[in-house]
Each structure stands twice: as C-alpha cells, then as structure tokens.
Design a protein around this nucleic acid. Structure first.
Lengths: 243, 243
DNA sequence: CGGAATGTTGAACCGTTTCAAACGGAGTGG
DNA sequence: CCACTCCGTTTGAAACGGTTCAACATTCCG
C-alpha cells in the first residue's frame, strides 16, 4: 500500500477521507490514480464558463477562485478553492461549466481523465460517497456565503471572509506565526463580497484600527481569533472540516 | 415495470432522469422505493439547523424554502425547493444540517429511510450519479444566487428572482394563463434577496409600472417574458433543466 | 366581526458607491 | 541608479440606493 505523504494528490485524498472511511485497497487506487501535473501562473484560467472539459482538474498547491460575470459585466467570486479540491466535478456529472475558475497565485494542477475517475467511482462505493461529501461541503459553504453577502454589513462581511480564509488555510497547513496569507487585491475581495474595492479599503482600515486584524503585505495577522469570530459571526461548522 | 405517472415520487424520478439514463430495472426500483407520505401545513419546519435525521425527505408537492439565520438574527433564504427535490441529502453523506427548511405553502413530503436510499445507490451506479447531478444543479443555482445578491441592484435582483421562480414552476407544470404562483410575502422575498420588505414593495411596484410584470393576488403574470429576462439578465442555463 | 398579519406610503437617515486625484511599491529599460 | 510606468492602495466629497421608523390601508383567517 502506498501512503506517501508527498504524493501530489495527498490533499485530495486526505480531504476525501474526512467524512468517509475508505478501505486500504481504495486508498491505494487513489494513490495510483494516473494524473498529469501542470503549473499555472497567477491569474491563469483553469476553467471557463461554457467549457466542457473531458478531464477533471485537482488543485494540488496554490489558491484558485471561482467567479461568474453578470450581464452588466460585474463579477462575483463565488468560491475560493484550496489545495485538494476538485475543480470541475460538474462536468463529470452534468454538462458545461457555469462559472470560471482562475488562479489567485501560482498553482499546481493535477489533471485526471474523466474515464479514470468514473471507473474509480464505479468500482468503489466509498470513493463515490467521498466525492459527494466534498460537493456537499462546497454547497454548505456557498450557503454561508449567501448569508454573508445578503445579510451582513460590510465590516462584518469582510471579517467573516478573513475568518473563513484563515480557517481553511489552517486546515491545509498550520502556520507558525498566525499570519495568514491573503493573496487577493482589494478589488478581488470586493468581487467576493459584493462590495467595491474602495469600501473594502476603508473597512479593512477600520478593522485594523480596532485591533481586530493586523495588516501585512499580502496577508493578515489575527491578534485575537475569538474576538474576530464574534464580530464576524463566524462559526466554522458550515465548513465541515475537522481541525 | 411500473411507470405510473401518479406515483408520488414521480417528480423526483423525473428530475433524477434528466441528466442520466437510468435503466428500466433501476427505474423500477425507484418506483417501488418504500416511502411514507405526510402533509405539512404552510410554515412548518421540515428540517432545522443542527438536525441529523435518519431519513431523507422528498418534496412531493408544494413549495419549500431553505434558510439560515445570522448571529444578529437576520434571515437569509438560500434556496427555493420545488416538487421532486430531495431536501436533506446532506445528512445522508456528511453530518448535521447547516440550514433550515420550511414550507412556503402546504406540502406533501415523502420520507425515505437512509438505509433504503443507501442500498439503492450502492446497487445502482446510475442512480447514484443522478443524485449527484441533482446536487450539482443545486450548487449551480446557489452560485447564480450569489451573483444575484452580490452584484445586481434591487430592481434587477427581484426581476431575476421572478424569472427563476416562473421558469422552475414551468418545469414542474406548464401553467395555462402565464400567471405564476409566487406564494411569498414581501418579507420572505426580502430575505431571499438580501433586501427589506419595504424595498421589495417599492421595486415590485416599479416593475409593474414599467409593465414588466402584472401583479395578481399571490402571483405574477409576465406579459413579455423576453423583456423581463433582459432586464433581469436571466439565462436559464444555470438551472440545468431541460424545457 | 375582530384581530393579526401583510402590504403601502412618506420622510429622514445611513451605508455604500462613484468619481477623481494622489500615493506607494515593484518591475523595466536606459 | 534613476526615471518611468503600471498596478494597486489610499483619501475626500458628493451622490445614490436602500434602510429605518412610523403611520395607515388592506387582506386574511378564526
């Protein structure tokens, strides 16, 4: 049985195992899944609205984001993707993509053929279940975002977003200094939160003035995690992670 | 082979068949799925945040909505459920519910045990796929809602919501008179769209004044479907329905 | 019929946007 | 190493969309 932690698909396999026990044999199939590894520069498109790829892409390292463009040309970021997430499950089951996926920083992407993944799911009940679980986690996350965008005011909305980002970062790798990488422009944060870049700027300054966050170059430090979560109304339960 | 159209689960079976070919044998299993039928008054809770039911509920008739409550007590409606939709798939695969589901009008609900559904999925690859496809449709819908709430202004947002409602209603049953049932209070519409009931009222009046909609008791008529979709920036593609 | 829930309207208020200008830092070429 | 440019950040003032509050009208329902 191969259980090498340095397998590029390790994050994916780990996250698939969160909610479902996967047998050693199936785990081994996962470790031996044939894939092709590519590097994408920051800002590259992985998937475009309307695409219908015949393979699945897994985010191995880096951070990507999913967005939609309205008829008026306004952009809404609908998800942030962390290492381990499968980026185009939709095309495996339904049809063309309804959203774009773009890298936020340089990303390694593993490409797996639909055929290989379909066969795996057909052969292993537990792996199919695990993929479904990962999809449900994304759905749960989407619902919390709707609450965030629809019913929280700007300041709180940003605080909540920072909490989610920090929490998900920690799930991937515990950072020593409590400084979380937040490699987004204020424009991108605005697009994620339904606000303008200008307003993001002002509220970020507010949060810093209140001592809720400390701003560093392309990241934030959170001096008092509990206080920030209270302001944000953040409860990690919706992420369905175990850490 | 049983293919009775009046089987209470007919809508569910039909919607499961949209994206996946299901064999006659599996269709028969679906038709003979053991269930228990209940009636819920308008306003009843089907599922509560934190619940962990050991059965799945399928909406047979009526309309239900899913919502979350923020720490400040504000409500955000995150989905409208139409007949045929499975309401608590999440608990089948992950854990406790992260949202509430409540009936909008009187609803018939079929209850199916997790055990029965799990067995069915384990035995039929195509039924598992179909359930996954239905989940992906919900995810796609959630993403469009985020775009709607985050990036469209009030008037357009409401127009888009009305389009979606009408379109989904039509998918269930073609109405003769083009009058779509919209059995929501303005407060509920506000909670769905991240607006106040007062503002919903004003914008609804605006849309009516412009001739984009005609307001009837608990519904709307749409004189010019194409014009409304243009104003709303509505494109049915994200719903992944076939009609 | 009466009471509660929902819809309607106006005026004041406030959070967020818009526009425009200035500032800062990183990268490039001379 | 400086000058230049590009891109993102910062700041201010005015405008706007949406909220709040409060009063009143209407519909629903027991």
């Amino acid at each position: 049985m191969n259980t090498a932690k340095d397998n590029p698909l390790a994050h994916m396999i780990e996250s698939l195992s969160i909610h479902n026990a996967i047998s050693d044999k199936d785990l081994d199939s996962l470790y031996h899944l044939p894939y092709h590894l590519d590097y994408f520069e920051s800002g590259s498109y992985i998937l475009r609205d309307g695409d219908m790829p015949d393979q699945c892409r897994v985010l191995v390292s880096g951070i990507a984001y999913r967005h939609k463009i309205s008829a008026m040309g306004l952009r809404q970021i609908v998800a942030i993707h962390m290492p381990g997430e499968i980026l185009d499950l939709q095309q495996l089951y339904i049809d063309i993509s309804d959203s774009n996926v773009q890298t936020l920083i340089g990303c390694e992407i593993a490409t797996i053929s639909h055929a290989a993944l379909r066969q795996l799911v057909a052969e292993s009940y537990s792996i199919g279940n695990a993929i479904v679980a990962s999809m449900l986690m994304e759905l749960s996350s989407a619902r919390e975002w709707m609450l965030n965008i629809g019913r929280r005011e700007g300041r709180t909305r940003i605080a909540h977003f920072i909490c989610e980002f920090a929490y998900k970062s920690n799930a991937i790798e515990s950072l020593a200094g409590q400084v979380y990488n937040l490699p987004m422009t204020q424009e991108q944060m605005g697009d994620a939160l339904g606000l303008t870049a200008v307003h993001i700027n002002r509220m970020l300054k507010d949060l810093a003035r209140e001592g809720l966050i400390v701003r560093v170059k392309h990241g934030v430090a959170i001096p008092d995690w509990k206080r920030l979560t209270q302001v944000a109304g953040f409860n990690s339960r919706y992420l369905h992670l175990k850490n």
